[in-house]
Design a protein around this nucleic acid. Sequence first.
DNA 1: CGTATGACGAGCC
DNA 2: AGGCTCGCCATAC
Length: 105
Amino acid sequence: MSDAGGFFKRVYVLVRRIPRGRVATYGQIARLAGAPGAARTVGWALHALPKRSGVPWHRVINARGGISTSCLTHPADEQKLLLIEEGIRVTKSGMVDLARYQWSK
DNA sequence: CGTATGACGAGCC
DNA sequence: AGGCTCGCCATAC
């Protein structure tokens, strides 16, 4: 399940472990997945991830605490709303205070 | 097996 | 804060 050529799966498992009201960066997930530097691959994993998969993809943001979504199927506006509904303060520009909300195992 | 891609990261302006 | 360039890494074709 969490192994066997499924780097993506490993990412999904880690994202699911992010507690509600907390966020993580792509680089952080990549590092926990055992591939520091593969932040881009993490983003791609979530990109291919359907919302109904149950993975809180909206809790994953970039190192600057911003929403980088350029994906039309996953609008940044929706991600922003989801984060706000979890109690996370997000600026109009979609910036999150990492120092306060970044997930720490 | 080589090239292209991508929801990134860090550095620089 | 926002934008551009280069570098890293795992898939897709």
